[in-house]
Design a protein around this nucleic acid. Structure first.
Lengths: 242, 242
DNA sequence: TATTATTGTATCTATTTGATACAATAATAG
DNA sequence: CTATTATTGTATCAAATAGATACAATAATA
């Protein structure tokens, strides 16, 4: 396997990276009435992980997070929020890293920076599923969407990171209206409700939910969405914010 | 000025510390109906700062935060919460560090780890003011309480860190009932209200506030607090949580 | 025209919140 | 002993919000 120049330079020229700190991203998308997250699978291994990366020495933390997200999704200006720092001293182990690197034909010297201790800054991102172009990194053979109820065992503390992100998203869902970042430009009331039910993990009463959302004054009614179904057509709405 | 052995070892033996990461703590206390925070003043300088510190290589992040807090307050098992990571690349500058260290008789070599870039993990802590023993660190000549409306200009981004902590505390005040960590074991209804008003920065309607707090079912009425004043004595309450 | 299923809105009850007032002290002056 | 003052605990009414349920209005087809 040919190791490309950028990767070799990246892994070995550690002076370009901020030591000890990594970023792990929980990227949420919404499709077919299911909340999903993007996961990587490392080449020639059964290791799954959240997308993530490091911070360049000359880069703001937030810019680094945006860059990491753009690399995996192809999108710019993604809605993202920090939600927690994960800093247990034993949250990673060398053996797993060696396996992952070996599976990609890379042998880590015992004092390689990647084997040092890292704390991870957790970000959750909300993207329009239809615009994402999932893009594996150089160590992974896939970058794919997973329904929340079909998430494989993730390496290290990534399952905990994911759960903390979901918990935070649930708390924010009404206060910050972040869920709208997961919808396309226009959507129906049924789609909004399905989104909220998926995030919150509970059934909502249709008429009360609709009254509540409409009372916020954040939706503009556009036109009816005629689908050919033998029943009343729903309105399409657009998110507007003053 | 004599430099004690621990400090010399600490600053020069950087392999014991996790590089690039620091902790900054906003320590809230409540006294005389005023919310206050603990601030350090560096020796022989006019530099004020939030208490903080580093993480030992063999220490969990949370343990490091507790240790830092204990060193400044003398208290264990302090209520603390992460609230944000501050990671702008230019959030600190070498000149200020040189001045602070010089003022303490320490000359930093140009490649000293302290001059490297750091991201800071912000914690807010809520302490019982009456139990705190403010303790300066080795570089500071004072560690004192400051009313929120009398905070001096802090170095680097510490004013922003403080403001973000207060914002987060305000958001959490009803959902997590964290304010009670700031009160002594027993308190009056007037004291609770003053605490909430100080945190929220707004006047509350006495009877409605009392009804709301009592309806939570988290307070146990103890006995009356007779103060000798020519009016009705208030009850003392204790915080109980199931 | 009747049917079916979906969507938008209405209605009633219950709960919570905001505004305001009243009742009950506690110590002291007269 | 009564009146006064100031504070605290609770009551009350109106308004707003939330929960439960139902009704009206479609849209396409048999």
């Amino acid at each position: 396997m040919t190791e490309n120049t950028d990767l070799k330079d990246y892994w070995e020229n550690k002076t370009r990276l901020l030591p000890s700190v990594s970023i792990d991203c929980v990227i949420f998308g919404f499709h077919n009435n299911q909340l999903k997250i993007l996961l990587l699978k490392y080449k020639n291994t059964n290791y799954y992980a959240l997308p993530g990366g490091f911070i360049n020495l000359d880069e703001d933390l937030e810019d680094a997070a945006q860059r990491v997200l753009e690399d995996r999704t192809g999108l710019k200006d993604i809605y993202l929020e920090q939600f927690h720092v994960f800093g247990c001293k034993n949250r990673r182990n060398d053996e797993t890293h060696q396996q992952i690197m070996s599976a990609s034909g890379i042998n880590l010297k015992p004092n390689h920076f990647l084997l040092n201790r890292f704390i991870s800054i957790g970000y959750y991102a909300l993207v329009d599923f239809s615009k994402v172009i999932p893009t594996p990194d150089d160590l992974s053979d896939s970058c794919q969407w997973y329904d929340l109820d079909k998430i494989p065992h993730l390496m290290f503390d990534h399952n905990q990171i994911f759960e903390k992100a979901l918990e935070t998203l649930r708390l924010m869902i009404y206060d910050k209206l972040v869920g709208f970042n997961l919808l396309p430009t226009t959507f129906t009331m049924n789609e909004i409700q399905n989104l909220y039910e998926t995030i919150l993990g509970e059934k909502l009463v249709r008429s009360n939910f609709q009254r509540k959302i409409l009372s916020l004054g954040i939706l503009e009614r556009i036109e009816k969405k005629m689908t050919g179904a033998a029943n009343k057509a729903p309105y399409l709405y657009r998110f507007v914010r003053d």
